[in-house]
Amino acid sequence: MQSSSEVRHWYGFFLALTTAVMWGVLPVFLKLSLEKMDPVTITWYRFAVAAGFVLIVLWRNNALPRLSSLNKHHAGLLTIASIGLIINYVLYLKGLDYLNPETAQVLIQLAPFMVMLGGIYLYKEKFSRLEWLGAFLLFVGMLLFFNNRLDELLSSLNNYSLGVIMIVLAAITWAVYGLLQKRLLRQMGAKQITLVMYTAGVLALLPFSSLGTLTQLDSLQFWSLAFCCINTIVGYGAFTEAMFVWHASKVSAVIALAPLVTIASMSLALRIWPDHFVASDINWIAYVGAGLVVTGSILASAGKSRPGVKG
C-alpha cells in the first residue's frame, strides 16, 4: 500500500464500489450465458478477451513480463496460482449452473476468509477481535441463509448440494491464488501476473472448449457473454487500481456488498427477463443470513486496519 500522502479516498471508494457492482451483477449475466454455452468455453472467452486487453496495455507501456527472470521457486508459485485461478473460474461457473446467482454469490464470500486463514498459516498473521467477530457472523449468516435447504444439503448428493460443493471448492482455489499472488507481487506487477494467468487459462482450456457454440447464441446470450468478458477486465482492473490507491481493508469492506448487488440485480432480472429466470426460494430468514454474511465480511475487513498491519 502506498504512503498516506498518496491515498486517494474518494477515487478508491469509487473504484471499490465499481468492483462490487461489476462482481455483483456478473452471476446474472453468467447465468444467461450458461443457457447455451458450457462453463469451460465461457471461461476461455473471458480469459482470451482479458489477456488480449492486458497484453496491449503492457506492450504499450513496455512492461511485458520477463518470465526468464523468475527462479524455479517463483515459477512454481506462478504455475500453482495460475492453476488455482483457472479452476476457480470453471468451478464457480459449474456451481452457478446448479444454483441461483444469490446463493453462489453468498457462498463465494468464503474465499476472503480462507485467504485470512491461509495468512495465519503462511504469513504468521493474527486475527483481531473484529476479524473473529466477522468470521462468526459470516458462518452464522451462512447457516441462516441455507435454513430451508440444510436437510437437502446434508441428507443426499443432488444438484443443489453438488453446486454448493463446487462453489466452496471455487472459494478454496481462489484463496490459493490470492495467497500465492501476495508473494508473487514482490517479483512482478499485478498486471504482469494476470497476463500470465489469463494466457495460461487460454492455452489450458482451449482443447476442452467448444468455441463454435458462439454462433448458436441469440442476441441476449451473446451480449451477456460480451458483458462477462468486459466485466473481467473492468472488475479486476478497478479492484487492482483500488488496492493501489486506497487501503486494502476499506476496499475489501466495500466489495463485501457484492451479494446485496446480486440480490437486487436478480429482482430486476426477473422483471426484465421473466422467461430466463425463476424466482429464488429465499425466505426472510435467508435474507437476514445474507445480511449477516455481508456484515461479517465488512467487520473482518475493518479488523485489518488495526495499527501495525499493512493495509
Rank of each mutant, 00 (worst) to 15 (best):
F14V: 15
F14W: 12
A16Q: 15
L17V: 13
V21M: 07
V21W: 09
V25I: 05
V25R: 00
P27G: 03
L32V: 12
P39F: 07
Y45F: 03
Y45T: 00
F47G: 00
V49A: 12
A50E: 15
A50P: 12
A51Q: 07
V54D: 04
L55E: 13
I56M: 00
L58W: 04
A63Y: 07
A63D: 08
R66Q: 11
N71T: 01
H74P: 02
A75S: 05
G76P: 07
T79D: 06
I80R: 04
S82M: 13
S82I: 03
G84D: 03
L85Q: 07
I86P: 13
I87G: 01
Y92T: 06
L96A: 02
Y98Q: 13
N100Y: 01
N100L: 04
E102Q: 14
E102I: 03
E102F: 05
T103G: 11
Q105L: 13
P112G: 09
F113K: 02
V115E: 00
G118E: 08
L122C: 04
L122T: 08
K124R: 08
K126V: 05
R129L: 03
L130C: 06
L133Y: 06
L133T: 06
A135M: 02
A135P: 13
F136K: 07
F139S: 11
L150S: 09
D151A: 08
D151E: 09
E152G: 10
L153I: 10
L157E: 03
Y160P: 11
I165P: 08
I167N: 05
V168W: 10
L169R: 02
A171I: 10
W174V: 02
Q187A: 09
M188Y: 06
I193E: 00
T194S: 01
V196W: 13
V196S: 14
L206D: 15
L206V: 15
T213Q: 06
L214T: 11
L214A: 10
T215Y: 06
Q216H: 11
Q216M: 06
Q216F: 02
L220I: 00
A226D: 07
T232I: 06
G237P: 10
A238C: 11
E241V: 07
F244D: 02
V245K: 01
A248W: 10
S249L: 04
K250L: 15
V251M: 10
S252E: 08
L257S: 03
V261L: 01
I263G: 04
S265D: 15
S265L: 14
S267F: 11
L268I: 14
A269R: 13
W273H: 06
H276V: 08
V278W: 09
V278M: 01
V278A: 03
V278R: 11
S280T: 14
D281V: 04
W284L: 13
I285V: 05
G291E: 06
G296P: 12
I298F: 13
L299V: 15
A300H: 10
S301C: 15
S305D: 14
R306Q: 06
G308R: 01
G308M: 00
G308Y: 01
